[in-house]
Amino acid sequence: MNRIFRQTYSYWFLLPAAIIYTVMFLLPTAMSFFFSFTRWTLTDWEFIGLDNFIMFFQEQSLRIGFQNTLIYAVVTCGFKVVIGLVLGVLLTSKLRTRNYLRSVIFFPTLISTIAVGIAFSVMMHPTEGIINAALGWIGISGPDWLGDTRFALLSIAMVDVWKGVGVATVIYIAGILAIPTEYYEALQIDGGGLWHRFWNIIVPLSRPATNSVIILSFIGGLRSFDLVWAMTQGGPGFTTDVIASIIYKQYQGGFYGLATAGNVILFIIVTVLAFPLYRYLNKREVDL
């Protein structure tokens, strides 16, 4: 008995975390899958099979929502990778103010997403916003950033990049600082310059950091809701609707079973897109 206890002793320390994980994630996930097949309220439910899923795919704005979600995820992910890498290189250099700049770049990550959305909605106002006012000082007539269907979704995406690039930068800083100095010394002996240092050492050897940024940013883009809702609530029309905002509107309308089915579909979409991407990036990392 004592031998069995000694063998399992370390696993007992995992029990609190396992209970929290089960209660906060596994149980709600299982309940969501169950209630997606029902028509339910806070006090009652009725099993209706696949009707919720059929109705969800018949949603008029769903095609636009899928399209916007993919565009949003790809754009925000791409910009965070590129800008994060550039800032990571800059903030691991010998700049005297690099520690201060690291704090400045990471600071937007700490701000509430809703607060950021409201603030930028004011700044992007077509006639009274500070952005168009600044453009007017140099003779440029700024557009209606959130009211013009051509700019609305990309405007929100750029705000998302501004807020989230700090995390990407921190990941890149850690990845770049982990590169052994022997590579830089060998490059210097061979007469390589700053471009060779960046392209032949930093870019390939920071591949693990790049993979992490891509996965986190892409999943975050697919699941994005709060910034979109705070800035446009899916408007004008359905121009900036993403899957999550469509689901929220269904909750608002009292279609709880339909909205739950939408959440299940979103979960499946994120899994289907993110898991193969994760496997592909890890395979390339191993091959490298």
Score class of each variant (00 low, 15 high):
residue 245 S to Y: 11
residue 108 P to H: 02
residue 256 Y to S: 08
residue 272 V to Q: 10
residue 40 W to N: 12
residue 56 F to P: 03
residue 61 S to M: 08
residue 164 G to F: 02
residue 96 R to N: 10
residue 281 L to A: 05
residue 15 L to W: 12
residue 233 Q to N: 09
residue 59 E to S: 11
residue 17 A to E: 09
residue 100 Y to L: 15
residue 53 F to C: 06
residue 198 F to P: 07
residue 98 R to C: 00
residue 279 R to Y: 01
residue 39 R to N: 15
residue 97 T to E: 10
residue 176 I to L: 13
residue 42 L to D: 10
residue 23 V to S: 11
residue 137 W to C: 07
residue 255 F to A: 14
residue 207 R to S: 15
residue 107 F to Y: 10
residue 77 C to R: 07
residue 264 V to M: 07
residue 115 A to W: 02
residue 70 L to Y: 12
residue 205 L to A: 09
residue 65 G to Q: 06
residue 66 F to C: 02
residue 142 G to Y: 03
residue 65 G to K: 07
residue 56 F to N: 03
residue 257 G to T: 05
residue 109 T to C: 04
residue 169 T to I: 02
residue 287 D to Q: 11
residue 37 F to E: 08
residue 233 Q to K: 13
residue 65 G to R: 06
residue 52 N to L: 02
residue 27 L to G: 12
residue 101 L to R: 01
residue 230 A to W: 03
residue 61 S to L: 05
residue 1 M to T: 14
residue 56 F to I: 07
residue 234 G to K: 09
residue 129 G to Q: 06
residue 254 G to P: 07
residue 182 E to Q: 11
residue 231 M to W: 07
residue 287 D to V: 00
residue 40 W to F: 15
residue 214 I to F: 09
residue 262 G to L: 09
residue 207 R to D: 08
residue 49 G to N: 05
residue 122 V to R: 12
residue 26 L to E: 06
residue 134 A to F: 09
residue 274 A to I: 02
residue 47 F to V: 12
residue 93 S to G: 14
residue 101 L to Q: 00
residue 187 L to S: 14
residue 211 N to P: 05
residue 51 D to Q: 14
residue 49 G to D: 06
residue 42 L to Y: 14
residue 93 S to L: 00
residue 40 W to T: 10
residue 153 L to C: 05
residue 161 V to A: 00
residue 112 S to P: 11
residue 104 V to Q: 08
residue 217 S to A: 15
residue 204 P to L: 12
residue 80 K to G: 01
